[in-house]
Design a binder for these strands. Structure first.
Length: 367
DNA sequence: GCGACAG
DNA sequence: ATCTTGTCGC
Protein backbone atom coordinates (compact mmCIF):
# COMPACT_ATOMS: atom_id res chain seq x y z
CA UNK A 1 0.00 0.00 0.00
CA UNK A 2 1.95 2.99 1.21
CA UNK A 3 5.55 2.63 2.26
CA UNK A 4 7.16 5.32 4.32
CA UNK A 5 10.29 6.18 6.18
CA UNK A 6 8.44 7.55 9.11
CA UNK A 7 9.42 6.92 12.68
CA UNK A 8 6.68 4.84 14.20
CA UNK A 9 8.00 3.31 17.37
CA UNK A 10 6.96 3.17 20.96
CA UNK A 11 9.98 2.61 23.13
CA UNK A 12 11.01 3.09 26.71
CA UNK A 13 13.55 2.44 29.39
CA UNK A 14 12.40 -1.15 29.67
CA UNK A 15 14.27 -2.12 26.56
CA UNK A 16 11.13 -2.39 24.49
CA UNK A 17 11.30 -1.25 20.92
CA UNK A 18 8.00 -1.88 19.32
CA UNK A 19 7.17 -1.02 15.76
CA UNK A 20 3.50 -0.31 15.24
CA UNK A 21 2.47 -2.69 12.47
CA UNK A 22 0.80 -1.28 9.39
CA UNK A 23 -2.40 -3.19 9.86
CA UNK A 24 -4.01 -1.69 6.78
CA UNK A 25 -1.26 -3.02 4.50
CA UNK A 26 -1.00 -6.36 6.28
CA UNK A 27 -4.68 -7.12 5.82
CA UNK A 28 -5.04 -5.76 2.28
CA UNK A 29 -2.00 -7.67 1.04
CA UNK A 30 -3.22 -10.89 2.64
CA UNK A 31 -6.34 -10.69 0.48
CA UNK A 32 -4.18 -11.33 -2.57
CA UNK A 33 -3.41 -14.81 -1.25
CA UNK A 34 -7.02 -15.93 -1.38
CA UNK A 35 -7.32 -18.29 -4.38
CA UNK A 36 -10.01 -17.92 -6.99
CA UNK A 37 -13.34 -19.24 -5.76
CA UNK A 38 -12.34 -19.01 -2.09
CA UNK A 39 -13.63 -16.60 0.54
CA UNK A 40 -13.03 -15.70 4.18
CA UNK A 41 -14.78 -13.70 6.89
CA UNK A 42 -14.10 -10.49 8.79
CA UNK A 43 -14.03 -12.53 11.98
CA UNK A 44 -11.57 -15.15 10.67
CA UNK A 45 -9.12 -12.47 9.59
CA UNK A 46 -9.50 -10.81 12.97
CA UNK A 47 -8.93 -14.10 14.78
CA UNK A 48 -5.81 -14.85 12.72
CA UNK A 49 -4.44 -11.46 13.73
CA UNK A 50 -4.90 -12.53 17.32
CA UNK A 51 -8.26 -11.24 18.57
CA UNK A 52 -11.82 -11.43 17.23
CA UNK A 53 -12.57 -8.04 18.76
CA UNK A 54 -11.06 -6.48 15.62
CA UNK A 55 -13.73 -7.89 13.29
CA UNK A 56 -15.43 -4.54 12.84
CA UNK A 57 -12.11 -2.90 12.22
CA UNK A 58 -11.44 -5.44 9.46
CA UNK A 59 -14.75 -4.38 7.93
CA UNK A 60 -13.58 -0.78 8.15
CA UNK A 61 -10.32 -1.64 6.37
CA UNK A 62 -12.32 -3.29 3.57
CA UNK A 63 -14.60 -0.28 3.38
CA UNK A 64 -11.66 2.06 2.91
CA UNK A 65 -9.81 -0.23 0.47
CA UNK A 66 -7.98 2.30 -1.75
CA UNK A 67 -7.77 -0.08 -4.72
CA UNK A 68 -10.49 -2.76 -5.00
CA UNK A 69 -8.98 -3.97 -8.29
CA UNK A 70 -5.72 -4.82 -6.60
CA UNK A 71 -7.02 -5.91 -3.18
CA UNK A 72 -10.00 -8.27 -3.61
CA UNK A 73 -12.04 -7.33 -0.56
CA UNK A 74 -15.16 -8.78 -2.19
CA UNK A 75 -13.84 -12.16 -0.96
CA UNK A 76 -14.49 -11.19 2.65
CA UNK A 77 -17.97 -11.84 4.02
CA UNK A 78 -19.74 -11.87 7.39
CA UNK A 79 -19.16 -14.80 9.74
CA UNK A 80 -22.84 -15.80 9.54
CA UNK A 81 -22.51 -16.40 5.80
CA UNK A 82 -24.22 -13.21 4.71
CA UNK A 83 -22.68 -11.12 1.99
CA UNK A 84 -21.56 -8.08 3.94
CA UNK A 85 -21.01 -4.68 2.39
CA UNK A 86 -18.99 -3.48 -0.57
CA UNK A 87 -17.83 0.01 -1.37
CA UNK A 88 -18.83 -0.44 -5.03
CA UNK A 89 -22.24 -1.87 -4.14
CA UNK A 90 -23.26 -5.30 -2.85
CA UNK A 91 -24.61 -6.25 -6.29
CA UNK A 92 -21.12 -5.94 -7.67
CA UNK A 93 -19.70 -7.99 -4.78
CA UNK A 94 -22.28 -10.68 -5.48
CA UNK A 95 -21.47 -10.67 -9.21
CA UNK A 96 -17.72 -10.94 -8.64
CA UNK A 97 -18.21 -13.93 -6.33
CA UNK A 98 -20.61 -15.71 -8.71
CA UNK A 99 -18.08 -15.25 -11.50
CA UNK A 100 -15.70 -17.37 -9.42
CA UNK A 101 -18.30 -20.05 -8.77
CA UNK A 102 -19.50 -18.87 -5.37
CA UNK A 103 -23.30 -18.98 -5.44
CA UNK A 104 -25.14 -16.10 -3.83
CA UNK A 105 -28.86 -16.01 -3.00
CA UNK A 106 -29.96 -12.55 -2.02
CA UNK A 107 -27.71 -11.56 0.86
CA UNK A 108 -26.65 -15.13 1.66
CA UNK A 109 -23.71 -17.18 0.36
CA UNK A 110 -24.81 -20.73 -0.52
CA UNK A 111 -22.77 -23.33 1.43
CA UNK A 112 -20.31 -20.65 2.41
CA UNK A 113 -18.32 -23.04 4.62
CA UNK A 114 -17.28 -25.01 1.53
CA UNK A 115 -15.69 -21.92 0.02
CA UNK A 116 -13.77 -20.80 3.10
CA UNK A 117 -10.03 -20.57 2.59
CA UNK A 118 -7.69 -22.14 5.14
CA UNK A 119 -6.95 -18.91 6.99
CA UNK A 120 -3.37 -19.97 7.74
CA UNK A 121 -2.73 -19.81 3.99
CA UNK A 122 -3.08 -16.04 4.24
CA UNK A 123 -0.01 -15.91 6.51
CA UNK A 124 -1.47 -13.18 8.69
CA UNK A 125 0.96 -12.34 11.50
CA UNK A 126 -0.66 -12.47 14.96
CA UNK A 127 0.14 -8.84 15.66
CA UNK A 128 -2.75 -8.38 18.08
CA UNK A 129 -1.37 -11.22 20.16
CA UNK A 130 2.00 -9.54 20.45
CA UNK A 131 0.35 -6.23 21.26
CA UNK A 132 -1.64 -7.92 23.99
CA UNK A 133 1.50 -9.48 25.43
CA UNK A 134 3.24 -6.11 25.34
CA UNK A 135 0.28 -4.62 27.22
CA UNK A 136 0.53 -7.35 29.85
CA UNK A 137 4.26 -6.78 30.20
CA UNK A 138 3.86 -3.04 30.65
CA UNK A 139 0.84 -3.50 32.91
CA UNK A 140 3.07 -5.30 35.42
CA UNK A 141 5.06 -2.05 35.70
CA UNK A 142 2.07 0.13 36.60
CA UNK A 143 2.25 1.63 40.07
CA UNK A 144 -0.86 2.70 41.97
CA UNK A 145 1.11 4.52 44.65
CA UNK A 146 0.72 8.28 44.40
CA UNK A 147 4.19 9.61 43.72
CA UNK A 148 3.62 13.34 44.03
CA UNK A 149 1.27 14.99 46.47
CA UNK A 150 1.42 18.46 45.00
CA UNK A 151 0.63 18.39 41.32
CA UNK A 152 1.40 21.70 39.67
CA UNK A 153 2.68 21.24 36.09
CA UNK A 154 0.39 19.15 33.97
CA UNK A 155 0.03 18.30 30.27
CA UNK A 156 -3.33 17.31 28.80
CA UNK A 157 -3.70 15.60 25.43
CA UNK A 158 -6.12 14.85 22.66
CA UNK A 159 -6.05 14.19 18.93
CA UNK A 160 -8.10 14.34 15.78
CA UNK A 161 -7.65 12.61 12.46
CA UNK A 162 -7.51 13.64 8.84
CA UNK A 163 -8.17 10.82 6.41
CA UNK A 164 -6.22 10.39 3.25
CA UNK A 165 -4.22 7.65 1.53
CA UNK A 166 -2.74 7.37 4.99
CA UNK A 167 -4.69 8.75 7.95
CA UNK A 168 -2.86 11.53 9.75
CA UNK A 169 -3.20 11.91 13.49
CA UNK A 170 -3.01 15.44 14.83
CA UNK A 171 -1.72 15.20 18.38
CA UNK A 172 -2.09 18.15 20.74
CA UNK A 173 -0.56 18.54 24.17
CA UNK A 174 -1.40 21.53 26.38
CA UNK A 175 0.92 22.44 29.23
CA UNK A 176 -0.65 24.04 32.29
CA UNK A 177 0.32 25.46 35.63
CA UNK A 178 -2.69 24.17 37.54
CA UNK A 179 -2.14 26.58 40.42
CA UNK A 180 -3.92 29.19 38.32
CA UNK A 181 -4.75 26.94 35.35
CA UNK A 182 -2.66 29.16 33.09
CA UNK A 183 -1.80 27.73 29.68
CA UNK A 184 1.99 27.63 29.35
CA UNK A 185 2.33 26.20 25.86
CA UNK A 186 0.95 23.92 23.18
CA UNK A 187 2.75 21.08 21.40
CA UNK A 188 1.48 19.71 18.10
CA UNK A 189 2.47 16.66 16.09
CA UNK A 190 1.35 15.26 12.75
CA UNK A 191 1.88 11.53 12.60
CA UNK A 192 0.68 8.86 10.16
CA UNK A 193 -1.70 6.36 11.71
CA UNK A 194 -1.14 2.68 10.92
CA UNK A 195 -3.86 1.12 13.04
CA UNK A 196 -7.63 1.42 12.90
CA UNK A 197 -9.52 1.89 16.14
CA UNK A 198 -9.81 -1.50 17.85
CA UNK A 199 -11.40 -1.62 21.31
CA UNK A 200 -8.77 -2.33 23.99
CA UNK A 201 -5.91 -1.56 21.53
CA UNK A 202 -6.49 2.19 21.37
CA UNK A 203 -2.97 3.11 22.51
CA UNK A 204 -1.37 1.54 19.45
CA UNK A 205 -3.41 3.88 17.27
CA UNK A 206 -3.11 7.06 19.26
CA UNK A 207 0.09 7.02 21.30
CA UNK A 208 2.54 7.88 18.50
CA UNK A 209 0.80 11.20 17.89
CA UNK A 210 0.39 11.81 21.63
CA UNK A 211 4.08 11.20 22.29
CA UNK A 212 4.96 13.45 19.37
CA UNK A 213 3.00 16.31 20.90
CA UNK A 214 4.58 15.58 24.28
CA UNK A 215 8.05 16.06 22.86
CA UNK A 216 6.85 19.25 21.18
CA UNK A 217 5.35 20.75 24.35
CA UNK A 218 8.12 19.83 26.74
CA UNK A 219 10.10 23.05 26.19
CA UNK A 220 7.24 25.18 27.54
CA UNK A 221 7.05 23.59 30.95
CA UNK A 222 9.64 23.53 33.76
CA UNK A 223 8.74 19.96 34.74
CA UNK A 224 5.84 17.56 34.28
CA UNK A 225 4.06 16.36 37.41
CA UNK A 226 1.29 14.55 35.57
CA UNK A 227 -0.16 13.86 32.14
CA UNK A 228 -3.87 13.44 31.46
CA UNK A 229 -5.07 11.42 28.48
CA UNK A 230 -8.43 10.95 26.82
CA UNK A 231 -9.25 7.29 27.56
CA UNK A 232 -8.91 4.70 30.30
CA UNK A 233 -6.09 4.21 32.76
CA UNK A 234 -6.11 0.84 34.55
CA UNK A 235 -9.82 0.36 33.83
CA UNK A 236 -8.98 -1.96 30.96
CA UNK A 237 -9.14 -5.75 30.36
CA UNK A 238 -5.36 -6.02 30.75
CA UNK A 239 -5.03 -3.13 33.18
CA UNK A 240 -3.37 -0.98 30.54
CA UNK A 241 -5.55 1.67 28.96
CA UNK A 242 -3.83 4.39 26.97
CA UNK A 243 -3.17 6.55 30.04
CA UNK A 244 -1.40 3.73 31.90
CA UNK A 245 0.50 2.78 28.77
CA UNK A 246 1.70 6.36 28.32
CA UNK A 247 2.51 6.75 32.00
CA UNK A 248 4.75 3.70 32.23
CA UNK A 249 6.68 4.19 29.00
CA UNK A 250 7.35 7.87 29.77
CA UNK A 251 7.72 7.27 33.52
CA UNK A 252 5.40 10.21 34.22
CA UNK A 253 2.43 10.00 36.61
CA UNK A 254 -0.71 9.77 34.49
CA UNK A 255 -4.51 9.80 34.69
CA UNK A 256 -7.12 8.57 32.21
CA UNK A 257 -10.30 10.57 31.67
CA UNK A 258 -12.79 8.84 29.34
CA UNK A 259 -16.31 9.70 28.33
CA UNK A 260 -17.65 6.19 28.75
CA UNK A 261 -16.87 2.92 30.45
CA UNK A 262 -14.85 0.28 28.58
CA UNK A 263 -15.00 -2.48 31.19
CA UNK A 264 -16.41 -2.82 34.69
CA UNK A 265 -19.64 -1.64 36.22
CA UNK A 266 -20.83 0.97 38.63
CA UNK A 267 -20.99 -0.55 42.08
CA UNK A 268 -21.37 0.99 45.48
CA UNK A 269 -22.88 4.20 46.69
CA UNK A 270 -22.82 7.63 45.16
CA UNK A 271 -20.88 10.36 46.86
CA UNK A 272 -22.19 13.91 46.54
CA UNK A 273 -19.71 16.77 46.44
CA UNK A 274 -21.11 20.19 45.66
CA UNK A 275 -22.83 20.11 42.29
CA UNK A 276 -21.36 16.76 41.22
CA UNK A 277 -21.53 13.14 42.26
CA UNK A 278 -19.37 10.09 41.75
CA UNK A 279 -19.54 6.32 42.15
CA UNK A 280 -16.90 3.59 42.05
CA UNK A 281 -16.40 1.52 38.91
CA UNK A 282 -15.55 -2.08 39.79
CA UNK A 283 -13.77 -4.60 37.58
CA UNK A 284 -12.53 -8.01 38.75
CA UNK A 285 -13.95 -7.17 42.19
CA UNK A 286 -11.68 -4.15 42.52
CA UNK A 287 -12.43 -0.45 42.47
CA UNK A 288 -10.31 0.73 39.54
CA UNK A 289 -11.93 4.08 38.77
CA UNK A 290 -14.85 6.42 39.27
CA UNK A 291 -17.75 7.58 37.19
CA UNK A 292 -18.22 11.30 37.78
CA UNK A 293 -21.43 13.11 36.81
CA UNK A 294 -21.87 16.86 36.71
CA UNK A 295 -24.73 18.65 34.94
CA UNK A 296 -25.64 15.57 32.89
CA UNK A 297 -22.04 15.26 31.74
CA UNK A 298 -20.22 12.11 32.74
CA UNK A 299 -16.56 11.21 32.75
CA UNK A 300 -14.74 8.07 33.80
CA UNK A 301 -11.58 8.70 35.80
CA UNK A 302 -9.02 5.99 36.44
CA UNK A 303 -5.37 6.19 37.42
CA UNK A 304 -2.84 5.65 34.71
CA UNK A 305 0.43 5.36 36.57
CA UNK A 306 1.83 6.54 39.92
CA UNK A 307 -1.59 7.64 41.20
CA UNK A 308 -3.93 5.86 43.56
CA UNK A 309 -7.53 5.48 42.42
CA UNK A 310 -8.76 8.04 44.96
CA UNK A 311 -5.97 10.55 44.31
CA UNK A 312 -6.54 10.39 40.55
CA UNK A 313 -10.21 11.15 41.12
CA UNK A 314 -9.56 13.94 43.60
CA UNK A 315 -7.04 15.62 41.35
CA UNK A 316 -9.46 15.67 38.42
CA UNK A 317 -12.23 16.96 40.69
CA UNK A 318 -9.96 19.79 41.84
CA UNK A 319 -9.86 21.20 38.30
CA UNK A 320 -12.10 24.00 37.14
CA UNK A 321 -15.09 22.48 35.36
CA UNK A 322 -17.32 25.08 33.66
CA UNK A 323 -21.04 24.34 33.92
CA UNK A 324 -21.59 24.04 30.18
CA UNK A 325 -18.51 21.92 29.42
CA UNK A 326 -18.36 18.15 29.14
CA UNK A 327 -15.21 17.88 31.23
CA UNK A 328 -12.75 20.10 33.11
CA UNK A 329 -11.46 23.03 31.08
CA UNK A 330 -7.82 21.98 30.81
CA UNK A 331 -8.86 18.53 29.58
CA UNK A 332 -11.20 20.00 26.97
CA UNK A 333 -8.74 22.50 25.51
CA UNK A 334 -6.51 20.08 23.51
CA UNK A 335 -9.67 18.63 21.97
CA UNK A 336 -10.76 22.06 20.78
CA UNK A 337 -7.32 22.86 19.40
CA UNK A 338 -7.04 19.51 17.60
CA UNK A 339 -10.46 20.06 16.01
CA UNK A 340 -9.50 23.54 14.83
CA UNK A 341 -6.26 22.33 13.33
CA UNK A 342 -8.14 19.55 11.57
CA UNK A 343 -10.48 22.07 9.98
CA UNK A 344 -7.51 24.19 9.01
CA UNK A 345 -5.72 21.26 7.41
CA UNK A 346 -8.85 20.19 5.52
CA UNK A 347 -9.09 23.70 4.15
CA UNK A 348 -5.45 23.76 3.06
CA UNK A 349 -4.58 20.13 2.24
CA UNK A 350 -1.22 21.10 0.80
CA UNK A 351 -0.01 21.71 4.33
CA UNK A 352 0.37 17.98 4.73
CA UNK A 353 2.06 17.30 1.42
CA UNK A 354 5.65 17.31 2.63
CA UNK A 355 5.23 14.99 5.53
CA UNK A 356 8.29 12.87 4.91
CA UNK A 357 9.56 13.52 8.41
CA UNK A 358 6.32 12.33 9.92
CA UNK A 359 6.28 14.94 12.62
CA UNK A 360 5.91 18.64 12.16
CA UNK A 361 5.65 21.67 14.33
CA UNK A 362 3.74 24.86 13.68
CA UNK A 363 6.99 26.37 12.41
CA UNK A 364 6.84 24.07 9.41
CA UNK A 365 3.70 25.89 8.29
CA UNK A 366 5.15 29.34 8.48
CA UNK A 367 8.61 28.89 7.02
C1' DG B 1 -34.60 -3.26 16.20
C1' DC B 2 -31.50 -4.37 20.68
C1' DG B 3 -25.35 -7.09 23.82
C1' DA B 4 -21.05 -4.82 24.53
C1' DC B 5 -16.99 -2.80 22.59
C1' DA B 6 -12.15 3.94 25.45
C1' DG B 7 -11.46 6.86 20.68
C1' DA C 1 -13.19 9.20 16.42
C1' DT C 2 -15.87 11.08 11.94
C1' DC C 3 -19.92 11.82 8.93
C1' DT C 4 -24.56 13.10 8.50
C1' DT C 5 -29.68 13.37 8.96
C1' DG C 6 -33.15 14.67 11.47
C1' DT C 7 -34.95 16.66 15.57
C1' DC C 8 -37.61 11.42 22.26
C1' DG C 9 -36.47 7.16 24.26
C1' DC C 10 -36.18 1.99 26.76
Amino acid sequence: MVSSVIIRYIFNELGILYEIPDLYSIVLQALCRIPRGKITTYRDISKALGDTIAARAIGYIMKTNPCPDRYPCYKVISSDGSLGGYSLGSERKSMLLQKEGVKVMGQKIIDFEKHLVDISDLRLPPVLLSMRRLQEFISDRVSLITERKNIRFVVTFDLSFVDGPLDIGIGVGCAFDVDNEELLGVGISFVPVFMPYIPTYLAFRELPAILGSLSAVIEYIPRIDAIILDGQGILHPRGLGIASHAGVITNIPSIGVAKSILVGRISGKWTYRGDLKYAPVVYNNKVLGFLVIKNKHKIVVSPGHKFSVDDARDFVLSLEWPRNEAEPRIIRLPHKIASRIKEFVKKYPKLLESRSKGQKSLDDFFL
